[in-house]
Simulated scan of single mutants.
Amino acid sequence: MKKISTFLLLLSLSAPWAWAQTNEANTEAQKQPDPQQLLADLRADLTGLSAQFVQYELGSQGEQIDPNSGMVWMQSPAQFRWHYLQPIEQLIVADGDNVWVYDEDLEQVTVKQQDNELNPIYVIINDEKSQQHYDIRYETQEAGHDWISLTPKNRSEDVKTVWLALADDVVKQIKVHNHFDQTMVFEFTEIKRNPDLTGGLFQFVPPEGVDVIKAVDE
């Protein structure tokens, strides 16, 4: 009986503190930007974009592992072109039906059906796919960037969480974290909204003489 009375006393003493903490948390939540509105502003009138990018894996000490750089073009709702320039040239083209990967040095093209619904690129250019496949929440603001997280509604080995850094209605950075505790980072600069995307930019015809390999999903 004494133990119960002591517990009730502690509970009664802590109740105002708990209420204050809850109230403070609710007030803080009210101050946070709406992640859905941030994404809506990002995609407002967006039909396409282009940017320079740097891609690397984030090491345990925050170091950049295997950095790559190049140019990227995207067009709503599902087309993109990634052109890696450094340290090795490689081209990836998604035409809406298939994804083509061209390794010029190997004289080889790999093609597979474009069916990865969790591709982080869709977060930028396809509102329907991101809303359908991700739970979206606001995380924090840091160095003038609003960070939001997107967690797959269905478990995926490739994607555990996608983090977006937003500023000035564009994506400045994407972090893709998987279930193996690996984080891939994409940093974007020289971003242009709705650039003049030339015809054929998102089409790929294998060069004559290269090997074409059809990838089979496991």
Rank of each mutant, 00 (worst) to 15 (best):
L118Y: 12
P152H: 09
E139V: 03
N154V: 04
Y122W: 06
E142S: 04
I121Y: 01
E117S: 15
E128V: 14
A143W: 06
D127M: 09
I148R: 03
D127A: 15
Q132L: 13
S156H: 13
T140Q: 04
P120D: 12
K160P: 00
Y138I: 01
N126T: 10
Y134L: 11
I136E: 05
T140V: 00
Q132D: 15
N119M: 11
Q132R: 15
N154D: 14
Q132Y: 05
S130T: 13
E139F: 05
E142T: 08
Y138Q: 00
E128Q: 13
D158A: 15
K153W: 00
Q132W: 00
I125T: 11
D146W: 12
N126A: 10
N154R: 05
K153P: 02
P152E: 12
I125D: 02
N154Q: 15
I125G: 13
L118V: 07
Y122M: 08
V159R: 06
I124C: 07
P120N: 10
G144C: 08
W147V: 03
I124Y: 09
E128G: 07
E139P: 00
K129P: 03
Y122K: 02
E157Q: 15
K153A: 09
I136Y: 04
S156M: 06
L150C: 05
Y138D: 02
T140K: 12
E157Y: 13
E157I: 14
P152A: 06
P152F: 08
V159D: 03
P120I: 12
W147L: 06
I125R: 06
Y138M: 00
Y134P: 05
S130W: 02
E142V: 04
L150K: 02
N119S: 12
T140C: 01
H145T: 11
E128K: 04
I121A: 13
P120T: 11
H145C: 06
N126I: 09
R155V: 10
Y134T: 13
V159Q: 07
D135V: 05
K129F: 11
H133T: 09
P120S: 10
N119D: 15
E157V: 10
I148A: 01
H133K: 08
S149V: 11
V159F: 05
E142G: 01
